[in-house]
Amino acid sequence: MAPTAHAPAATVGTLAGAITPTVGALAGAAAPAAVRTLTHATTSTAQALASLIRAAAPAPAPSGPRTPTPAARSLARAAEVALTAAATWSVIGGTSLCREALTIQDALAAGELDAARRRLPHLCGRDPQALDGQQIARAVVESVAENTSDAVVGALLWGALGGVPGLVGFRAVNTLDAMVGHRSPRYRRFGWASARLDDVAGWPGARLTAALAVLAGPDPRGALRAWRADGAAHPSPNAGPVEASFAGALGVRLGGTLAYGGRVEHRPVLNAAGRPVETGDIARAARLSRRVAVLALATAVAARPVLRGAGPTARRRLAAAVLLGAAGAARTGLRRGARSAGEGPAVRPRAAGSARVRPLAAGEDRP
Rank of each mutant, 00 (worst) to 15 (best):
S340W: 15
A201S: 06
E146H: 09
R284T: 08
A213D: 02
V12G: 06
R189I: 00
V214K: 10
P305M: 15
G261C: 02
W158P: 02
A110G: 11
A145D: 00
R36F: 09
A139N: 11
T299M: 10
T43H: 13
R186G: 15
V144Y: 05
R284W: 11
L123M: 12
A272S: 04
A130W: 05
A298E: 02
I104C: 06
P70R: 00
A55Y: 14
A2R: 10
R287E: 00
S96G: 09
P3F: 14
V277H: 15
L224Q: 12
L288D: 03
R308Y: 12
R290C: 14
G255Q: 14
W158N: 04
A56K: 13
R253A: 05
S51E: 06
I53R: 15
L102E: 09
R36N: 05
G344D: 03
R335E: 04
G222E: 05
V357H: 14
R284M: 02
P70L: 02
A151N: 08
N174I: 01
P345C: 11
A330D: 08
L83N: 14
G222A: 08
G64R: 13
V168E: 05
L250Q: 01
A18R: 11
A201M: 12
E146T: 07
R117F: 06
P359W: 00
P312G: 04
L113G: 06
A272G: 02
A145K: 03
G342R: 15
R291C: 00
A16N: 02
R291N: 00
N238C: 04
E243Y: 02
A160N: 01
G93P: 00
E265Y: 08
D198G: 01
F170Y: 03
R308V: 08
A59S: 10
G64S: 05
V152P: 08
P235H: 08
P60A: 12
G24V: 09
A29T: 15
G280I: 01
A361R: 13
G255N: 12
P8F: 01
R138M: 05
R66P: 03
D365V: 13
R275T: 00
P62N: 09
A352T: 01
G93L: 02
A46D: 13
T209P: 09
A210S: 10
P58R: 00
P3H: 15
P62C: 12
R189P: 03
V173K: 13
T39C: 15
L295T: 00
T313W: 03
L102P: 04
R183G: 03
N147T: 10
T43G: 15
A5M: 10
R196L: 07
A244G: 07
G255L: 14
F246W: 02
A338Q: 12
L297R: 11
R335W: 11
A286C: 06
L75H: 08
G28K: 14
A2G: 03
R207G: 15
G94L: 04
T43E: 11
R228S: 04
G166N: 05
R183K: 07
A302M: 08
